[in-house]
Amino acid sequence: MPARLLRLEAENFRSLRDVSIPLGDLTVLVGPNGVGKSNVLQVFSFLADIIRTDLQPALESRGGFKEVAFWGGEKPPSTLRIGLTATWTTHSTVNAPDNYELTVQSRALPGEGRRDGRRILMRREKFVFKRTHGRGRRITVSGQKATVTNTQGDKKTGHSDIGISKLSSGLSTLPRLAKTEGGAEVTAVARRLSSLRVFDVDVAAARRPSRHLMGDSNVLASDAHNLAYFLFELSADEETWDRLLADARSVLPQLSTIGFRVTGGSADEITSGNCDPL
């Protein structure tokens, strides 16, 4: 089955109090400024950073738990949660999808009469790899232990415990496991998440003509300043270009096609725009 991300859940992540978003081949978020569209994308950026660096560095690079947890309300939340449903591993299906869940909790340090406000972070992760037929696997990460449980339908067929550093993420650590311990499945999830890119488009820069710079046309910049030349290069692949236009027309039915014009000067520049097909 084609690899697909089916659903995102986020609870107490920045401005996302409690959301569950079904995801299709193309998902469009529409709404006024400040309603949380960008923070939906930041969930994926956060998970990708966890894979590259680990949980604690990913939190610290964003100002710590207090900055990542829900912004709003009279009382700051003590827990944030992220959940994903997907068909990323070899045997997953829509009826038996892969599930990943991360919960981070901020707790006051124990101690009678403690009033200094010091807190500790705790994390819990869960990977569930279901199977309609055959053996599945569930991995739970809590404290300094990862428990791998093999399943056959609703029955447990065996389990093993693996040591893991306190506050380390299973996404960044467990891909090192052997295939028999679930390493292949976790690797598939981590690889998919780390490949996701979040764009913060500078509309003014994206509208300007873009020059061909070495290594600048094959990858779309995060602010889309090279959009025109990136699309120009992409148009050479007819199949990919047709798919892109089909996606674009599903959002902008009035779009006929995208054309390009070379503007002269000391260095050629490419501009793009909607135009009638030739």
Rank of each mutant, 00 (worst) to 15 (best):
P57T: 05
E60I: 13
R62M: 12
G63V: 02
G64C: 04
G64N: 04
G64R: 07
G64A: 05
G64W: 00
F65E: 05
K66E: 06
E67P: 01
E67V: 03
G73R: 13
P76F: 04
R81D: 11
I82M: 03
L84A: 02
T85W: 01
A86D: 02
H91W: 05
H91D: 12
S92W: 06
T93V: 08
V94Q: 12
N95I: 07
A96K: 11
A96D: 08
D98P: 05
D98K: 07
D98Y: 02
N99E: 10
N99S: 13
Y100V: 03
L102H: 02
T103P: 01
Q105L: 06
Q105A: 10
R107G: 02
A108M: 08
A108R: 13
R114Q: 13
R115H: 07
D116E: 10
R118Y: 03
R118S: 15
I120K: 03
M122T: 01
F127Y: 15
F129I: 09
K130V: 07
R131G: 02
T132N: 15
G136S: 07
R137F: 04
I139M: 07
T140K: 12
T140A: 11
V141R: 01
V141Y: 00
S142W: 03
K145I: 11
K145F: 04
V148Y: 00
V148M: 11
T149P: 11
D154Q: 10
D154G: 05
K156N: 06
H159E: 15
H159N: 14
G163E: 15
G163I: 13
K166H: 05
K166R: 14
G170S: 06
L171R: 10
S172W: 00
S172I: 08
T173M: 06
L174M: 12
L174Q: 05
P175H: 09
P175S: 12
R176Q: 08
R176T: 14
L177H: 03
A178I: 05
